[in-house]
Amino acid sequence: MSLVFAGVCSHGPGITGRKDMADPQHVAALYAAFAQMRHKLEAAQPDVLVVIAAEHFANFFMNNMPAYCLGLADEYSGPIEDPEWLGIARTTFPGAPGLSKRLIQSLLEDVDVAYAEEWKFDHGISVPLHFLTPACDLPIIPANINCQGPPLTPLHRAWAFGESLGRACTAAPERIAIIATGGISHWPATPDSGKINEAWDREFLTRWAANDKAKLLSYTDAETYAEAGQGGFEIRTFIALACATQGMPAAVDYYQPIPIFAVGCTVGTVDVR
C-alpha cells in the first residue's frame, strides 16, 4: 500500500484573490482547515502529490479536449492568472515524470487517458498547492478531468478513472499522496456568483464521506446543472477520489458557504491507514 494520504478541497480563485472581501472569521477558519490538511499531508511524508483537478482552460480547449489527462512533465508552472488578481505569485513546481509514466501506462489498461509533457496550472491547482505545499518542493502529478467544456465524461467513468488511478498508485513503490479538488454546487464566473446550494452540498458530502457509489453516481448532469450550477460538474474529481480510496473511512473536516469565494468551501480527508 503506497497511498499515504488522500483528501479533497476547494480551489475557487476568490479563496486567495478576494480574501480581504470575506468575513475574517470565515477566512481564518478556512485557512486553519487548509493548514490542518497540510499538517496531515506532511506527516504522511509523501514522495509525490497527485492532484485530480478540473482545470479551467489553462491547457485544454475545444480543439482537442481530453476527458482525462495526466501530466508527464519534468516541471509545471503557474498560475496562469494575473498573480495580483489571484493573490498567488508565479512559480514552478517539480514534476515526477518517472512515476507519471508508470501511472499512465497502468491507467491505459483500463482508461484511454491522454498525457501532456507541457502543463500550466491555473487556480484549480495553484490555490490548493498555495496552502498544501507552500515551499513548492513536493513533486506534483496533475490528473485532469474535463469538467468545463461539454460534452463531459459520465460520472461512472470518473469513478472508473479513480479506480484505475488508485490501483496504479497502490502498486507503485513511492509514497503517494492524492487530492481531488473541485467545487460542489456553485455558479462561478456568472452574475449568480455567490449562489450556493448548501443543502445539495451537504447531501453530496454525506454521500462522499460514506463512499456511497450508487448515490454518488446517481446524479444526472441535467439535475446537477439545475440544482448545483455549472460548477457542480466538478463533482467528478471528488467521485474519482472516492473510488481511489474505496473502503477507507473519510470525513468532511470543514464546510462553509462563503459567497464572495463563490463556493461552499470544503476540506475533507480520508484515513488511508
Binding site: P13, G17, H56, F57, E81, L86, D122, Q148, G149, P188
Partner: peptide, 17 residues
C-alpha cells in the same frame, strides 16, 4: 463565452471583481 475563459480574460483586462 465560457465563464471560466471570460473570468481570466476580464482579470487580464484589469477588471476588479
Amino acid at each position: 463565452v465560457n465563464g471560466q475563459i471570460l473570468m481570466h480574460f476580464a482579470a487580464m483586462c484589469g477588471y476588479a471583481w
